[in-house]
Simulated assay, not measured.
Amino acid sequence: MIHLSRLGYLLGLEGVALLRGFREGADREFVEARIGEIRALLDDPALAEADGVTAEPGAISSGDVYRTWASHYDTPGNQMIDSEQPVVRRVLDGLPVGVALDAACGTGRHTAYLAGLGHQVIGVDGSPEMLAQAKTRLPGAHLSQARTRLPGVRLSQADVNRLPLPDDAVDTVVCALALVHVPDLGAVLAEFARVLRPGGHLVISDPHLLSGYLQPRTLRTGPDGLPALLADHYRPLSDYLAAALPLGFQVRHCEEPRRPPLRLHPATPPPNPPPPHGSWDIMHWCPEAAFAALSGIPIVVIWHFQLANDE
């Protein structure tokens, strides 16, 4: 069981803001403001009374969460997508056209882009709700000016650990913001290597480890009605290399886009905050500290690997 405390989280943001300030040259006014806010947070009765919740880790699945996220997952303003998508598409623009697999395709945003580039695309996802969004998106996919028609796109509900494809079936695999939900990274990369042709390309994006430490956890009500946490697996960069290199993948590019500056507006905390198993979006209680702690840190990591060609 994990105990989550709103007060503890806010104090943590203040501490990270101070540590970054010491490293990056904060002035005395900034430091004193953070210390003053810490004292105010400790004295705030709304935070002191019945603060926190004990939640069971892993009691809800990514499928449970995406069931509610699907309809608004990639609406404008999702900072992770806004940071990841331009980099991934820049990589895809430089790859040869062929057969592409969008593994954990979600709402089909990269599926549609690959199709617009001329690829024959297979989109695979485990969430029927996300696939429903993908089916809605694909008829209106933007086409490259060099193309006059949308190539074939096939969508399939399946797990990334068991792809419904034969060996050496595709030229490119894209997997965006999904491996954080996978406990065994090596097994999934081995499955990608299986379906890729020699010389094929693997493009991965994933939430960054630093972002995982500083963002609030995904908290929901579990099947038993008790608070529950989504199981997530934020990884250091070395984990991707340790899993990929023994499979014959070679690094072609790695990039860590940074979180844009937060734009939070202070709000007076209500005298009786909502239950802690409700909204966990509480950064507006100390917006200056949140801005200093989170702005400019790496938010995602993008890898471009190429499978060795034995010929």
Rank of each mutant, 00 (worst) to 15 (best):
D281M: 10
G98R: 03
S83A: 15
L219Y: 03
P269V: 07
S205Y: 02
R6Y: 11
P266R: 14
G278M: 07
I122V: 08
V97R: 14
R6N: 05
L11D: 13
V182K: 01
R89T: 12
A103C: 05
I204W: 03
T68I: 11
L4S: 05
G152I: 13
I38H: 05
P298L: 13
D232T: 08
A132W: 10
P128E: 15
P76I: 08
G21D: 12
P298T: 13
L237V: 08
F249K: 03
T54E: 13
A292S: 14
H284L: 12
V31R: 02
L264I: 15
A26W: 02
R149T: 12
M1T: 11
W285M: 11
V301P: 02
C254Q: 08
A59T: 03
V173R: 00
G126H: 07
I297L: 13
R34S: 15
R20P: 10
P275H: 08
Y113L: 04
V91G: 02
A228T: 03
E255K: 05
K135N: 09
H277P: 01
L143H: 00
A50L: 09
R217H: 05
T268R: 14
E37P: 04
D27Y: 14
L237T: 07
R90Q: 13
L92A: 02
T68R: 08
P260V: 04
R252P: 02
L163S: 01
H181P: 01
F249H: 04
V88E: 01
V153K: 00
F22N: 04
S295L: 12
L210W: 10
L177W: 07
N161C: 09
F305C: 07
T218L: 11
P164V: 14
P151V: 06
P236S: 12
V160Y: 11
A115H: 06
A290C: 09
G8C: 02
G98C: 08
I81M: 15
S211G: 15
L294A: 05
A26C: 14
D74V: 12
M80C: 14
C175I: 04
L241A: 13
P57Y: 10
G152V: 10
H110G: 01
R252T: 01
D43H: 01
D232R: 13
Y213D: 13
L185Y: 10
A231Q: 04
L155S: 00
A55H: 00
G278S: 09
A178M: 09
P164A: 05
S238Y: 13
L196N: 03
R147F: 06
T136R: 13
G126Q: 05
R217P: 09
P227Y: 00
P236Q: 03
L185F: 08
T221P: 00
R20N: 05
T54S: 08
S205L: 14
E32P: 00
P298V: 08
A242K: 09
G140N: 01
G52R: 00
F22L: 15
V251C: 14
S144P: 04
Q215D: 09
G123E: 07
A146K: 13
P273Q: 07
P260L: 15
G77Y: 09
F192W: 02
E24V: 02
A70H: 06
V174M: 07
I302F: 10
W280P: 01
H119M: 08
G152L: 08
A104D: 08
F249M: 15
I282G: 03
V153N: 00
D310H: 13
H110R: 04
A176V: 14
S5P: 02
V97G: 12
C175N: 07
R149F: 12
E49V: 12
A244C: 09
V88Y: 02
R235F: 04
